[in-house]
Amino acid sequence: MSAAQLHAATAVAPQAGDVLSIENLRVSYGSRFNAVPAVRNATFSVARDEVFGLVGESGSGKSTLSMAILRLLPAQAHCEADRMRLGDTDLMAAGPAALRQLRWTRLSYIPQGSMGVLNPVMRVREQFLDTIADHTQGAQRREIEGRIETVLAGVNLRPAVLDQFPHELSGGMKQRVCIALAILLEPELIIADEPTSALDVVSQRQVLETLSSARRRIGASMIMIGHDMALQAQLADRIGIMFAGRFVEIGPTRAIFEAPRHPYTQRLIGAIPSIRRRQDIGELARRGLEHADGATASAHPDLPLREVSAGHFAAIEL
């Protein structure tokens, strides 16, 4: 482990009682001789009942990171971590059987765009029932089966959707079915991968509201992935900014928005359009291109995360 990595590990050291703690997670794709890194030394943790916003542009490694936590990376991906624990379970050491049982009972997932995630030839009810059947038995199974309609009502869906096939539901309804499935077994951690990116603005708002109230109800922690800074500002307790596979800044939402330290974060927040200072699209696009160049340049030296204020870390020269 290099000095920089060591520093990063101690700087954002996990606390006891964290739901998820990750140290130096590295994921690369391709062969050993031609490996393309997708996640580089990611170190962060998620506390109990916390919403951790994971922000970054396309290709920055957000989805790879979430798949790595779920241990569902494709076969050609190579994943290593000094530490990756869900509660007191070592995710890196868990075998297939242990992982299967842990998925959904302790760790659930809301996919990015729910278009193709439900089995097209099975009614929604069957997909609820098989999820329950493979994780519970006896009285507990009956209890959760009896709760399906309540959980659906919690995400504003009528029980009638249970008897429908996925293609008969709208995108927003499917997304809410996925939210209902994600909270059904009351997991400790929910990973939501851009849960609203496929929806229109009105549905986005509704779905996010149902998601956050459902999450609060079961007291789960959540990693919310997305590149919409405005949405993150509303929901996240802390935000981690990823760029080119690395965290460039992690901190409380308020600190990130009020005092962003890394140039990439600064430009990300600067790119939020405001109704008060109206810039035309051309200006925003030009600044977007500039920020890409600038951020690439500034991100080039692999700087470790340093604490810039209480709980606020940034990969910058002090």
Binding site: L70, Q101, L102, Y109, P111, G116, V117, N119
Partner: peptide
């Protein structure tokens, strides 16, 4: 390659199912 297969794995369903 379909997402419903990945999602079924994420839900921790049994391999045979």
């Amino acid at each position: 390659g379909e997402s419903y297969l990945m999602y079924a794995r994420a839900r921790g369903l049994r391999d045979r199912r």
